[in-house]
């Protein structure tokens, strides 16, 4: 199938290096300590953060740091055909774990000992790149909750189809079976915290990153192309970080001037 037309346009009319339209909104859940909605094109995700609060199970309490928990789920209505079991399957358990590890790495947990932070993310519309959207939404929600973070972690995916590197894959491109990477990135520290590679043969590069790899490795990808694809994803992360920062600054200013003196 042709994913990039001779004119250089993708199926949804984007250029290969173009991201989908992103939109973020803070304060979507009234009762949560922090919450956000994040959209990347037709992918729409809602995140809510509760905490830091008292640990529910005393045995899990840690006297030197906070416990971070994360739950990822997809709404029944998020996909084309209605889902029977929106959570608890292997895929959502894995994504919960990935999000938890990514967020835990950037939360300053040692500042909130003996407490727990709960992150709930739910996919409202799925059109590819749900895990990136979830990480972005979770970052926004954590920032809204006033939880101290090392850096704003953002995430974006990139793939390689029709011998072209493509940024921010949608569902059709994602399910084409080509190699793709999902990158979690800390823009200030200039570090990659998450790297998920799917359908890729070469994983020699792994030594360079504190990486986590899943997926089957069958399609071939030369190492320099991989570097390109990954660089593209990192660029996407940077663009998202700029947008998130803008939204947060706007929100902070608003809260401040509304409160007055």
């Amino acid at each position: 199938m042709e994913y990039v037309s001779p004119e250089g346009l993708r199926l949804d009319g984007r250029r290969p290096m173009e991201m989908r339209q992103i939109r973020a909104e803070i304060g979507a859940v009234a009762k949560a300590d922090g919450s956000a909605v994040f959209e990347m094109g037709n992918t729409k995700v809602i995140a809510a953060v509760y905490g830091p609060r008292e640990v529910q199970h005393r045995s899990q309490q840690m006297s030197d740091q906070a416990l971070v928990r994360c739950e990822y789920s997809m709404a029944n209505f998020s996909t084309g055909d209605r889902m029977r079991k929106p959570k608890g399957d292997r895929r959502s358990t894995e994504i919960s774990l990935v999000i938890r590890q990514t967020m835990e790495a950037c939360i300053l947990t040692h500042l909130m000992p003996r407490s727990q932070i709960d992150i709930f993310v739910q996919v409202l519309q799925a059109d590819g790149g749900t895990r990136s959207a979830c990480i972005n939404a979770a970052t926004l929600a954590l920032a809204d909750a006033g939880i101290p973070l090392r850096d704003l972690v953002t995430s974006c995916s990139a793939g390689y189809l029709n011998s072209t590197p493509l940024l921010d894959l949608n569902y059709v491109e994602d399910s084409a079976g080509g190699p793709d990477v999902t990158v979690g990135f800390l823009p200030k520290l200039d570090k990659v915290t998450l790297l998920q590679v799917q359908n890729l043969l070469n994983c020699v590069i792994l030594g360079r990153f504190s990486a986590l790899v899943v997926g089957k490795m069958d399609s071939k990808l030369p190492i320099d192309t991989f570097e390109n694809v990954m660089q593209l994803a990192i660029e996407g992360c940077k663009a998202i970080a700029n947008y998130i920062r803008e939204i947060l600054l706007e929100n902070t200013k608003q809260l401040e001037y509304r409160r007055g003196l």
């Binding site: 920032a143 973070l149 920062r245 902070t252 608003q254 001037y257 007055g260």
Partner: peptide, 22 residues
Amino acid sequence: ALEKLEFLSSKVNSDASVTIAD
């Protein structure tokens, strides 16, 4: 009304707001 509030407070402390990693 909110514009007015913003205008009133903007004189007092401008650019003191920061976000994470600023």
